[in-house]
Structure formats: structure tokens, C-alpha cells
Write a protein that binds this DNA or RNA. Structure first.
Lengths: 238, 238
DNA sequence: TAGTGGTCTAGACCACTGG
DNA sequence: CAGTGGTCTAGACCACTAG
């Protein structure tokens, strides 16, 4: 199963070492320059290998630090969900279901808030995303209150939450992790999404990473996939 | 919303033109060299812009041809499902439920077979993927029979379908498109996945593109996400 | 401050596509 | 065949991280 490209060989080498346990979760892989020396390639090639490993979810990379071996969650396969706003070709409307309000972190969630976050209260809000007049997605979001002062006193910038984080608080979304399940709609979700209670809906738990270390945004998405499935067009060089 | 990088600006420029209809579905975007000249950048930079557009699903790229504007399906968001075999940290077993056999293309499917394919019969088989003793995924696959002679007379190479395509027929999987839904398990699926009939399961329709133009592999996946959700760890530079 | 990853230049050779 | 995207070299400057 030798890859025919140099970067492919480096990629497979590193992957094997991760799988065999030569690198533990949290460890740093060799830096780009070290890989250049070890494999006698230029940075472009070493870099490409690391980027592919990142795309496959084996590592995350951090500017100024290095390539960090990722935790492998209890999940099947790998996939990527991008922002709802990246969807094109649809008329999307957002309806605020419950305005931002302060709560405690009472969480039955796939991801645990970090130590930094639990000392703060959290802000919660939920929105309904509609294509035309059809509700397609209910999104609940949580974030720690301490990094976003007077969040609740102001409207969102252009109605966009992410744009608000960026423009008003200089917080950028840098990535995400998610878990997807098929679940039964509870009564509330069913009413909002216009489906019968207990019918199947797609559930996505997301943790967005931000430009602030240790600061995350959490979301739960419930999707009615009858009319609009979650989908993509993607092709990856193998 | 100006991007601070050159490739980001080019990327946004092209995206806007696609969204505004300056390029129709199927059109070719400017080639890498043309972008180099137009924006006074090197190929590395022009290339990066096109690669990001590809990752976002706006275009597909074809060696020797160019960057082709993608059809925007009736889907929400964008996501990527990678091969089941890329999952790590699990003991995966595959059980052949129905061995490869010849059929007509009778299709109630998200993707239509291409003209090349309908003139041929198709091969169908289905497999159950288990983690330990827990069935987690039922996979049905279809492919045109004419490109894989004596497919049914031989066992899979290492038990792997993709490896068989690669080693025996020199056909490589180059990418995929998919649609995800939450549906009710029918009786058969329920029995195989050890869930009650009509309980929610994740349904994924996949079309794999191959190194043979116009030749695809189609799959339907049914996943029991109770114990093992579909998930990932991903971070994209924004 | 030294080392890291992020971006970018200016070339090169190759395999693939289409006319 | 000319043009395309895929890979790769050998440099450069920058912003970020951590000691």
C-alpha cells in the first residue's frame, strides 16, 4: 500500500507511528523542518503530509507550537460540517427562538466545558433556520459569558452570531468537532421543525474552537432532513 | 469581510462570481496560470485559492481539464464522510450479508447512474460492519459490472472492497459525494443493526468517484448511532 | 529569543485531457 | 499537440508560542 508521492509516504509513516502508539495523544509530531531533514524534502512536501494528517483528524496544528496528536473519540468515520451560512443556493431565514440569557452550565452534552469555562456563567440562545418557509434546523448554542461583555444588550451584527464574535469581540472560529446521531424528535423540537413527535431527526453536537485558547462555543443542532438532507460534494486526492 | 491573505481574496472573488452566476454549473473557472497572471501571484497562491473552493464544495478539479463549477444539490451545509476503514481505535469486523450478484439498475436512489453505466448490468452486495460484537453499519453497494470482469468469482483482496478495486482492476477511489438523513429503520435493517423497527437510524447515500471517468460506486449506509456516533475532529483555517 | 507553523515567490518536471 | 492540474525544490518573510 505504498503511496507513490513523497508526501504520501511521509503521511503513511507518521500515521503508522501514531496508530502503533509511538506518539501518544497530545504529543508533538516532528516539526516541519525536522521532517524536511529526516526525509530530505522541502517544507512544501513535509507540510503537505502534515496537512493531510490534519484533514484525516489525526492531528491538530497550532501556530508557534507544532502538530499535536488528536484524541480519537468514540466515533465512526470522519466528517466535517461547515457553517450553515456557507450553504448557498437557498433563501435562508433565521428566527430567534429564545434570546440570549444567562444560565449555569447544566450539561448533558458530548463535550465537557473546560476548566476555564466552568468558573464563568454561560449564555444560551436558540435559533430556528428556515429555507423559505420550511424550518430545517433548530440550533441551540452555549458560550462562556466572561469573554463576551454586554453580549445580551446588543443585537447580532448582520444577524450573524459568528460575525458578532468576530467584529465585536475579536474572536474567530478556527475549527470544529462534531458528533452526529439519528434521534427521535422530542415534542418541542417536533413542533418547531414541523415534524411529528418521535420521528427521526438528525442530531449534531458541535464544539467550535476559537482563536481564544480554551474558549469554545457549543451547539446542538436538530435537523429535519426530509426535504433538505445534509450533504456535500467533495473530492479528496487519494 | 476582506480576507487578509492573497489566496483568501482570490477565493472570495471566485466564490462571489459563482454565487452571482458569472459561472454556471459545469463551467470552467480560470486555470491556475490564468489566475496567476490576473492576480499577479505565483501558482502556489492561485492553487491554494482553488483548493479551498474545492474543499468548500464549490468546484471539482480535474487533472488535464480544469476547475469545474459544481452542482449545488438540495442540501444543507457541507460535510465529508471518509472511508469506514480510516476509523481507528476500534476492532472492526465485516460480515458479508449478501454476496455479490448481478442485477438490473432498479434504482430509488439520490444519484442517477450515468449513461455509460445503464447499458451494463450492475453488481450488488451488502455487508455489515461491526465494532467488536456490536453491529454499527449496514452497507449496500452497487457498481457497473462491465469494468470488473469475474468480480463475483473471487474473494475480496484482504476482505477489502476498495483494495480489490485497486489491486485487481486498477480502479482508485478519488472522492465522494453524499447525503445524510435521519430515517426510520425498516424491519430488515432493524434486525441486522439490533435496533427496534422504526427507530431512528442514520442513512447516508454515497456516490464514490473513481479514477475511471464516468465510473462510480454507489453505496447506501444505515448506521446505528446509539453507541458510536458519526464524528470527527477537524479544524480548518478560516 | 529561538523555534514553530502560515504565507508566498519563482522556478521545474510530470501525467493527464482534449482537439 | 498545447494546456491543465499534481508534485516538488529552494529559498524568503511573517506572526505566533514558549521559555
Amino acid at each position: 500500500m505504498e503511496k507513490s508521492t513523497r508526501y504520501g509516504q511521509i503521511q503513511e509513516d507518521l500515521k503508522k507511528k501514531i496508530q502503533q502508539g509511538s506518539y501518544e495523544v497530545g504529543d508533538l509530531l516532528p516539526s516541519e523542518n525536522e521532517l524536511c531533514a529526516a526525509y530530505h524534502v522541502t517544507r512544501t512536501t513535509a507540510r503537505k503530509a502534515l496537512q493531510e494528517l490534519q484533514n484525516e483528524g489525526y492531528i491538530t496544528r497550532q501556530h508557534g507550537k507544532g502538530s499535536i496528536v488528536s484524541e480519537r473519540r468514540n466515533t465512526l468515520g470522519l466528517l466535517t460540517v461547515r457553517g450553515f451560512s456557507e450553504t448557498v443556493g437557498h433563501e435562508v431565514r433565521n428566527v430567534m427562538i429564545s434570546k440570549p440569557s444567562i444560565h449555569d452550565w447544566s450539561r448533558d452534552f458530548s463535550f465537557s466545558p473546560s476548566e476555564k469555562e466552568v468558573v464563568s456563567k454561560c449564555i444560551h440562545f436558540s435559533r430556528l433556520r428556515c429555507v423559505g418557509t420550511t424550518p430545517v434546523m433548530l440550533e441551540e448554542s452555549w458560550l462562556a459569558a466572561d469573554c463576551v461583555p454586554s453580549f445580551m444588550e446588543q443585537e447580532f451584527v448582520d444577524g450573524s452570531f459568528f460575525k458578532t464574535l468576530s467584529k465585536r469581540y475579536m474572536i474567530e472560529i478556527t475549527g470544529s468537532e462534531q458528533e452526529i446521531r439519528a434521534v427521535r424528535a422530542d415534542e418541542n423540537v417536533g413542533i418547531l421543525l414541523h415534524v411529528a413527535a418521535k420521528s427521526p431527526v438528525l442530531y449534531i453536537a458541535v464544539r467550535y474552537t476559537t482563536s481564544l485558547p480554551g474558549y469554545y462555543v457549543y451547539s446542538k443542532l436538530y435537523c429535519n432532513t426530509d426535504k433538505y438532507p445534509i450533504g456535500n460534494v467533495y473530492s479528496s486526492p487519494k
